[in-house]
Amino acid sequence: MPALDHDEQIRRLAEVAEVRVTDCLDVCDQANVLVVQPTPEGRAAGGRPMWLALVNDQGATADVAEWIRAGGPGLAPMPPILELHRFTPPRRLRPRDGDRRNA
């Protein structure tokens, strides 16, 4: 399998949505991770951010772009193929009472 061209992936997604790139989302074992945010209309309709893991090929990128074009979270049903990429990120550790290290 050829290596993913990250710049091309960003370019393709930027054609349909605002794209922000970060070094780490604390789920490196799931890379490439995309978080698809709902539009304001999608959020009003009940859409929530959708985390997608292992988006490592052009086909998966195209599927994400097409879903965003259709409206994304809250406005368009997630295509079944993207359900294979969907995951719930782990919650960050919360500080215990009196423990300020993670505050």
Results as ranks from 00 to 15, higher is better:
His6Trp: 09
Arg12Lys: 07
Asp63Met: 02
Phe87Met: 03
Ala53Thr: 00
Trp67Lys: 06
Trp51Asp: 01
Thr61Phe: 01
Ala53Asp: 00
Arg94Trp: 09
Arg91His: 12
Pro49Lys: 01
Arg43Asp: 14
Gly98Thr: 06
Met78Glu: 12
Pro77Cys: 09
Gly46Thr: 03
Ala62Pro: 04
Arg69Lys: 15
Ala76Thr: 10
Trp51His: 10
Met50His: 05
Val55Leu: 00
Phe87Val: 03
Gln9Trp: 06
Asp57Arg: 04
Asp63Lys: 06
Gly42Phe: 14
Arg100Asn: 05
Leu82Tyr: 07
Gly46Asn: 03
Gly72His: 15
Glu41Asp: 15
Ala76Ser: 14
Thr88Cys: 02
Ala65Met: 13
Leu4Arg: 04
Met50Ile: 11
Glu8Val: 14
Gly74Ile: 13
Gly47Tyr: 05
Asp97Gly: 00
Pro73Leu: 12
Asn32Met: 05
Ile10Pro: 00
His85Glu: 02
Ala70Asp: 13
Val19Lys: 04
Arg69Pro: 03
Met1Arg: 06
Ala44Asn: 13
Arg100Gln: 03
Arg12Thr: 06
Gly98Val: 10
Trp67Gln: 09
Ile68Asn: 06
Ala60Asn: 04
Ala76Trp: 10
Ile81Lys: 11
Val21Ile: 11
Met78His: 03
Ala3Tyr: 11
Met1Gln: 04
Ala31Met: 06
Ala17Gln: 05
Arg92Asp: 12
Ile68Trp: 07
Asp23Asn: 12
Asp57Ser: 01
Leu34Trp: 09
Gln9Asn: 00
Asp29Asn: 08
Thr61Trp: 01
Asp26Gly: 10
Arg20Met: 02
Ile81Ser: 15
Ile10Ser: 09
Ile81Pro: 05
Met78Trp: 01
Leu54Gln: 04
Asp57Phe: 01
Ile81Asp: 08
Leu34Gln: 06
Glu8Gln: 15
Pro80Met: 11
Val64Lys: 03
Leu4Phe: 07
Thr88Ser: 10
Gln30His: 10
Pro40Thr: 10
His85Val: 08
Ala31Val: 03
Arg101Gln: 10
Pro90Trp: 15
Ala44Tyr: 07
Val16Met: 10
Val19Asp: 07
Ala53Ile: 00
Glu8Pro: 05
Arg92Asn: 06
Arg94Val: 08
Leu54Ser: 05
Val36Cys: 02
Arg43Lys: 15
Phe87Glu: 03
Asp26Trp: 07
Thr61Pro: 07
Gly72Leu: 14
Ala31Arg: 14
Pro77Met: 10
Gly59Phe: 04
Gly59Pro: 01
Gln9Arg: 11
Leu34Asp: 08
Val19Arg: 07
Val55Phe: 02
Leu75Lys: 15
Arg92Lys: 11
Gly98Arg: 07
Ala44Met: 08
Pro95His: 03
Gly74Asp: 13
Thr22His: 13
Ala14His: 08
Ala31Gln: 11
Glu18Ile: 11
Asp97Arg: 03
Asp99Val: 11
Gly72Gln: 14
Ile81Glu: 13
Glu66Trp: 00
Gly74Asn: 14
Asp23His: 11
Val33His: 05
Thr88Arg: 12
